[in-house]
């Protein structure tokens, strides 16, 4: 599963990072709480969120996330776009709500983490 395939599933639009869409997605983390994202054990994950702040990009960068999808039509602020460019993190926007976005990505062979 690549970022591009996820993008197509989510009918998402690329804000920045066309050149990084072939990166492999191993799992997905979906949260509006960055503290939860920082606690995940997942690697090479796509981050789905409803938060659109520069801290989302910082968190993704430090966690080695392969891309960020802003849900429900959120659009990242300009400074977040600048940061994402530097760190090679593709930013995508989808109109889907987070739950629907998760449903579309479920059952596609992405890793599931059952640890509480």
């Amino acid at each position: 599963m690549t970022v591009r395939e996820c993008m197509q599933r989510l009918e998402a639009e690329v804000v920045v990072g066309d050149e990084w869409l072939d990166r492999k997605v191993e799992s997905v983390a979906a949260s509006d709480l960055l503290s939860d994202v920082l606690a995940t054990h997942k690697h090479n994950f796509l981050l789905l969120t409803g938060l659109s702040t520069p801290q989302v990009v910082r968190t993704a960068e430090l966690m080695g996330s392969v891309g960020i999808v802003f849900c429900r039509g959120k659009y990242p602020p300009q400074d977040a776009i600048g940061m994402a460019k530097v760190h090679g993190i593709p930013l995508l926007c989808t109109r889907l709500q987070m739950f629907e976005a998760c449903c579309r990505l479920a059952g596609l062979g992405l890793e599931q983490d059952s640890t509480p």
């Binding site: 520069p54 300009q78 400074d79 776009i81 600048g82 940061m83 460019k85 530097v86 760190h87």
Partner: peptide, 14 residues
């Protein structure tokens, strides 16, 4: 002007 904001952030980050 909007892109300028992004570019400044990019520069700061670099």
């Amino acid at each position: 002007m909007l892109q300028e904001v992004a570019m400044q952030a990019e520069q700061r980050e670099r």
